[in-house]
Amino acid sequence: MEKKTGEPLIHLGVLEEALNLARANSLWPMTFGLACCAIEMMAAGAARFDLDRFGAGVFRPSPRQCDLMIVAGTISKKMGPAVVRLYEQMPAPKWVIAMGNCAISGGPFFYPEMYAIVPGADLLIPVDVYVPGCPPRPEGLIEGILLLEEKITGRGRLRKFRNAAE
């Protein structure tokens, strides 16, 4: 796996693992809506879907308090530099979820003559989890967050279910 910027130089073994467990279960996402998908992100945090169940419902307005950036929506060329700057302002360790087709690949707005958008968040910043859909349903985002937990700790809640199913 490629090394991410901001990864610590010294790894502390078991302690790191314990920390990762803590990190995975209290991800603090940034309130960062770009377009339509942001509404589904809000819905995921609100009454019915309730991201708080997974410890990821503490939406923070400032990048300096977050460790998860959910890129929810279309990144326009004008917004691109701001996305990079926001990512750089987040303290490490940090993760990125690309939510929606726009953030993955430009989605419906990508065509040969297109002039306005950046086709994919991964052209700007490293992305950990891709959640497809236009927009993805809140369940989709929740699955994305669980997958991210799995990526951080190596043993997420989803894996248990998947193993049981197999």
Partner: peptide, 24 residues
Amino acid sequence: LLPFEADFHPLRKKFAPSETPADA
């Protein structure tokens, strides 16, 4: 609407994709 440093006017009919800056 477009970034201040853009150098094209997209809704002109003769606006061609080659005029777009390659990647942001």
